[in-house]
Design a protein around this nucleic acid. Sequence first.
DNA 1: GTTGGCATGATATGTTATAACTAATTATGG
DNA 2: CCATAATTAGTTATAACATATCATGCCAAC
Lengths: 153, 153
Amino acid sequence: MVKGRAAIKRRLDAAAIACSQRGSRLTDLRRAVLELILMAEGPVTAYQLLDRLKKSRKGAAPPTIYRALDFLLDNELIHKVESLSAFIPCIDAGNHSLSVQFLICRRCGTVAELEESTVSEALERAAARQGFRPGSTIVEVQGICAACSTQAP
Amino acid sequence: MVKGRAAIKRRLDAAAIACSQRGSRLTDLRRAVLELILMAEGPVTAYQLLDRLKKSRKGAAPPTIYRALDFLLDNELIHKVESLSAFIPCIDAGNHSLSVQFLICRRCGTVAELEESTVSEALERAAARQGFRPGSTIVEVQGICAACSTQAP
DNA sequence: GTTGGCATGATATGTTATAACTAATTATGG
DNA sequence: CCATAATTAGTTATAACATATCATGCCAAC
C-alpha cells in the first residue's frame, strides 16, 4: 500500500521506465492493475482486483487480471503472497530482490517484506548440502506484528 | 512415500497410538486417508486423494477429505506443501517439527523435508528484530534435486 | 499494405476449499 | 443401562482461485 496520488504516480512512471528498459511494455491495462495494487490497503486477491478493475473496464474477466498479474510478477513490480493467494507491491521495484521473506500479521493482515541475507544464505547452504540447486523460494511467516502485539487482546 | 505394506502398517499403528496419547482418535476414515498419503508416490492433492478414497467409500465428497486432512495436519502426521497445494507424510511424526523446510524438485516432483535450525533461527531473529511474534512458517524452495541434476537434460 | 508478433476480449472450464445442515456414532454422567 | 452431549461423518451446494482456448485487435517492421 502506497499513500498519496503523487507517490503512486511516481511509482507508475518509474515502473513504465523500468519496463521499457527491459524491452517490455507497461500497457494501460497493466498500469491500471498495478495502480490498484499500489492503492490497496494491504494484500489484494485477484478477484478483488477484478471487481475493482470492472469499474473502468466493463469486459474484464479472470484472464484479464491473471495475465496482468503474470506480467507484473515477471517484471518484479509486485509479489505474490502464496499463503494468502494475494498480491502486494514490491517495496523497491528495480532492486531485483530474488529472495525475500514476508511477515504476515494474523490480526491486522499487513504484510512486511524483508530481505534478510542471513535467511537466504542459510537456506542456500542447506540446499547445497543436499545437492539441491535452488530456483525461487517462498518464505512466509504468519504471526502477530509489533503494532498488534502492543494492543488490547 | 513409504515403501512396503508392513512399513505402512507400522506407521499407521504408531499414528493411532500417538493420537490416543494426545486424546484424539485416528478413526477408520482418517486412517484410510493417511494410508493413501503414505502409499502415494510423492505429494498428492486433496482431489487426488478423494478419487482414490472413493474406491472404498462411495459417498466421499470434498469435505470428507478436507476434514481428514485437517485432523492429520493438527496431529502432525502430515505436512501441506503450500506451493503445490499437496500433502506429504511427516518424515518423523511424533517429533513435532515446528519449523521445517521443503526442497521441491521441478523435474521429478519429489519433496525433501529438512529441519535446519540455522534457517529457522535466522528467520526467528529477523522476525524478532521487527518486533514480530512468529507463529507458523512456510519455507519452500523450488529447484532441481541432486538426482535430477546428474541426469540428461 | 501485408505479415507477424504481442496484447486483449470472450467464453468456458478446471482446480482448490469451505459453508451449512443432517445423520450417525461414540463418550459420559446419572 | 439409558439419556444426552460431543464428536465424527454424510450430503448438497457454492465460494474462491486459476487456466485453456480461440477469436479479435493493434502496431511495428518489412
